[in-house]
């Protein structure tokens, strides 16, 4: 046998990772992304004649813990029927023994790329609001994401916003329904850190205590301390606050920034009790900021309030001023 060249080795590596879809309705087209615990492929669903995204457990991420987590992620996604959360079509085990699930194929950009291409603050806040909506829905279903960051949000070609990668999500209640905590799958042993898109992601363990789950820069202090089992909606609020900081780092005038900064500071407070209680209340404050209303996180002094109100009602103030000026001019004209 001839020695295997580096090119052939590279090809064989890809073959090992390629999902064996024999016996399924899918044909793999190409890999499109690598995540914390799997590779996402563009695939064709032969029966429905449409393209889907197939997330397949990576060969390199072996072990029953990861398989269980993948299954849990699929079940959590299936439970979260919301326009801001990617719908799952199917879940199963491939001929090669790897777990997979099929989901809607999203064409668009990751939020970090999208933000670079869209400097407009209003548009960024619209996207952020959609993210908050999806996360708030998950919270209402008793699910905490635990790894929110711009890389886990996709903005579709028609402006739709989807929150992805629920692989380490935590279920606050409802274990009886068969959906376990994705970050604490049964029978797991401590595993090393996985990585994706150049960003450190997670290290997990069975016990939950001591496991660090999240991404530095976005994970809440309680998660960074290894208290991920205690994560609740306020931990996601922290990540959303960090995301808001990322989206608005180069935006707005100084007065506006002070109010925005106060929102971010409150969302990312060290003490969970000082943060917004959930994603909805954070979104409400951001919406108030966007429409020029007073925000709950910032106590204005009266000149600031006057400036904000003036800015918010500048058209009405302009019209009234013009009317008054005209009246004055008419009065003067009649007098002379």
């Amino acid at each position: 046998m001839k020695p295997l060249s580096d090119d052939t080795l590279r090809h064989l590596r890809e073959i090992v990772e390629l999902p064996d879809t024999a016996g399924t309705r899918y044909d793999v087209v190409e890999p499109i992304a690598r995540g914390g615990m799997g590779v996402v492929f563009r695939a064709r669903d032969r029966e429905l004649d449409r393209e889907v995204a197939l997330k397949v457990l990576s060969v390199r991420d072996t072990g029953p813990d990861v398989r269980a987590r993948m299954l849990t992620e699929a079940r959590i996604l299936a439970r979260l029927e919301h326009p801001g959360i990617v719908p799952v079509h199917d879940v199963g085990v491939l001929a090669d023994g790897r777990t997979y699930y099929a989901m809607k194929l999203i064409r668009g950009s990751r939020l970090d790329d999208y933000a670079r291409a869209h400097p407009n603050l209003g548009e960024r806040l619209r996207v952020f609001d959609r993210v908050c909506e999806a996360v708030a829905f998950a919270h209402s279903e008793g699910i905490v994401h635990r790894d929110l960051k711009p890389e886990n949000v996709m903005v579709g070609a028609y402006g739709e916003v989807l929150v992805l990668d629920w692989g380490v999500a935590k279920l606050l209640r409802g274990e009886a329904s068969g959906v376990a905590d994705a970050g604490q799958a049964p029978d797991s042993s401590p595993t090393g850190a996985a990585h994706g898109a150049g960003v450190f992601v997670v290290a997990r363990s069975t016990t939950g205590s001591g496991a660090v789950i999240g991404t530095p820069g976005y994970m809440a202090p309680e998660q960074a301390r290894g208290e991920s089992a205690q994560a609740d909606p306020r931990s996601d609020v922290y990540a959303l606050g960090a995301m808001l900081g990322f989206l608005t780092r180069d935006a707005g005038d100084r007065a506006a920034l002070r109010r925005l900064r106060a929102i971010i500071d409150r969302a990312t407070a060290e003490d969970p009790g000082s943060r917004y209680p959930n994603a909805s209340s954070l979104a409400d404050d951001v919406a108030r900021f966007a429409t020029g209303e007073a925000v709950s996180a910032y106590r204005e002094r009266w000149p600031e309030r006057a400036r904000r109100v003036a800015a918010r009602h500048r058209i009405a103030i302009g019209l009234v001023s013009a009317y008054l000026l005209m009246r004055v001019l008419l009065l003067l004209a009649n007098r002379f």
């Binding site: 590279r10 590596r13 890809e14 090992v16 990772e17 890999p31 499109i32 992304a33 690598r34 995540g35 590779v39 996402v40 995204a53 997330k55 990576s58 060969v59 390199r60 990617v86 989901m103 999203i106 950009s109 990751r110 790329d113 996709m154 989807l162 992805l164 990668d165 990585h195 994706g196 898109a197 150049g198």
Partner: peptide, 12 residues
């Protein structure tokens, strides 16, 4: 398998 498919920037 570190080199397989690389680390892509886009997509879910």
């Amino acid at each position: 398998l570190g080199g397989a498919f690389g680390e892509r920037e886009n997509g879910p």
